[in-house]
Write a protein that binds this DNA or RNA. Structure first.
Lengths: 222, 222
DNA sequence: GTCGATAAAATTGTCGACAATATAGCCAAA
DNA sequence: TTTGGCTATATTGTCGACAATTTTATCGAC
């Protein structure tokens, strides 16, 4: 049981995924310019491939493009973080509410099982949970909403930008344990088919996360 | 005072906008296949331009593309309408709430003025209001939220798909007058800086609209 | 007549070259 | 020294041709 793997079939797919990873993980610095020729050399593909990849990244809000000028990796800023997390709070809150209705019993069992393994990981002090585990939890609830547009907007739309903030600001410290408890409450509300509560808990959870990230960002930037 | 005009600078922009319009207005039938070569001839541009336009349309959820197979215009269905409007209700509800806080006094005055002209148009029995007028009203509130991500997701993301349902199903009948009253209530709540009420009224307004469209869609399809 | 394999046609994916635009550097005039 | 415009350079936008893949058509076996 793991993250959904998007299967790259075309060269453009592979480049898109690679480039996205390099941006999210900070190998390509936030705010830097994306030269089509340079990237074409770097990934050993034609410029057309790179162009298409960049276009797709624009929809994920990971790069910004100006006609006849070029594309830049987005800059992380407190203002953008807030506006992003406002949207996230609304959409994932909705996802949690819908998931409480639309997830199958099996899916909920699997969600609970996932949390059990997370508990062990947290207790063992591993770092796994910080990124992949959290993403996986949210991922499943989003998919559990069974709302295609919602799923698309979150996963293809803003999820990797959210990851970018998390990865580049780091998610360590006491927040990890707290977040795990919040996850468990949310899962329990879904298990009880209590959509309203699930939404409220999810919104609150995301709000806390935002405050945590915002603080780190302010420390980092000044 | 009218809709924000996106300024097309490149040939790709123009083709994108033209193709989008042809899809939204039904000149290219919903569900039909988009042949790159055919469209290249039709719009007198190269295939590369058409490809880029189609890629952009995919992000608006107006076409679906399969690797090595091609792109099709999305099919309108009651299920998709519901999932789309669920998202819309959440996002535009949020927009209304934020707009109540973030719109300037001048912007609110302009919004009220817009409604006055709409009133005249409705009373005179013109059809103007059905499409452009309504879009313009929502448009301004979305922009009034001042949340860049929200604005982008709504306007570049799903707005033209919403328009597609409205245009192709038609928005006539008694709903027009009712909707106008709902618009006025929303504007008043924003004027009073009452974000919670604005959100609630907006959500309800969109919910009504959805029911109206769903009914028409069921009549049309069977 | 149906089914499966094979070959032909059509469509999408990819590439390198050229055109158009923006950027950087240079020179001259104030 | 600074400013303005011009030239040279670099980067993006666009195109047509070729490669890879899918779809359609053809044919033979059962």
């Amino acid at each position: 049981m793991h993250l959904v793997t998007e299967q790259p079939v075309t060269a453009s797919d592979k480049t898109f995924i690679q480039l996205r990873q390099d941006i999210v993980e900070g190998d390509i610095q936030s705010g830097s310019k994306l030269s089509e020729t340079e990237l074409a050399n770097r990934y050993a593909v034609s410029r057309a491939i790179v162009r298409e990849a960049i276009n797709r990244l624009e929809n994920c809000h990971l790069v910004e493009r100006k006609p006849n000028v070029g594309a830049r990796v987005v800059a992380l800023s407190p203002e953008r973080l807030v506006s992003l997390y406002q949207v996230r709070e609304s959409l994932e809150g909705m996802a949690a509410r819908l998931a409480a209705t639309n997830m199958s019993d099996d899916e909920i069992d699997n969600l609970q099982a996932l949390l059990s393994t997370h508990l062990q990981t947290v207790q063992s002090g591993e770092t796994y949970y910080q990124e992949a585990g959290d993403v996986d939890f949210h991922y499943r609830i989003i998919l559990g909403s069974k709302n295609d547009h919602l799923i698309s907007m979150l996963i293809e739309g803003i999820y990797h930008l959210i990851r970018m903030y998390r990865v580049q600001l780091g998610m360590a410290g006491p927040r990890v344990t707290t977040a795990f408890d919040e996850h468990r409450s949310i899962a329990q509300a879904i298990d009880n088919r209590d959509g309203e509560l699930a939404e409220m808990l999810m919104r609150r959870h995301i709000f806390y996360t935002r405050n945590n990230l915002e603080q780190k960002l302010l420390e980092a930037v000044g």
